Simulated assay, not measured.
Amino acid sequence: MNSPCIDLCAFDGSTGWCRGCGRSKPECRTWKKAQPQQQRKIAADLPRRLAKLAGCGRDK
């Protein structure tokens, strides 16, 4: 599976997820060596993470 990286590496302080791809630093570091099922599991959660990150900046 190809990496979801979009070369925008900026990690959110409250979640620890990258604002570009949604992965954590450990997930980014181990992506190439991760088993395909682990990559798919992470990739399946990325839309939820990115939506949460997008909502973090909103005023309540």
Rank of each mutant, 00 (worst) to 15 (best):
G16L: 11
T30E: 14
S3D: 14
W17K: 06
D12V: 10
E27L: 10
C56R: 09
M1Q: 06
R23I: 09
A34K: 01
Q37I: 10
R23D: 15
S24E: 10
P47S: 04
T30K: 12
Q39M: 11
G57L: 12
C18F: 04
D45K: 01
A44I: 05
G20W: 06
Q38Y: 03
K41M: 08
C28S: 10
C21K: 05
Q39I: 03
G57V: 04
N2S: 15
L46Q: 03
C5K: 04
D45P: 00
R23L: 09
Q39S: 08
Q38C: 02
A51H: 12
R40Y: 00
T15V: 07
S3P: 06
I42Y: 00
P47T: 01
D59L: 14
A51S: 09
K33Y: 12
D12T: 03
L50V: 02
W17N: 11
A34E: 09
G13Q: 15
F11N: 08
K33V: 15
R19P: 00
L50K: 05
P26Y: 08
K25T: 07
C5Q: 14
G22S: 02
D7H: 03
Q35E: 14
P4T: 08
D7L: 03
D45H: 02
G57R: 14
R49S: 02
Q37A: 15
K41Y: 03
Q39P: 06
C28G: 05
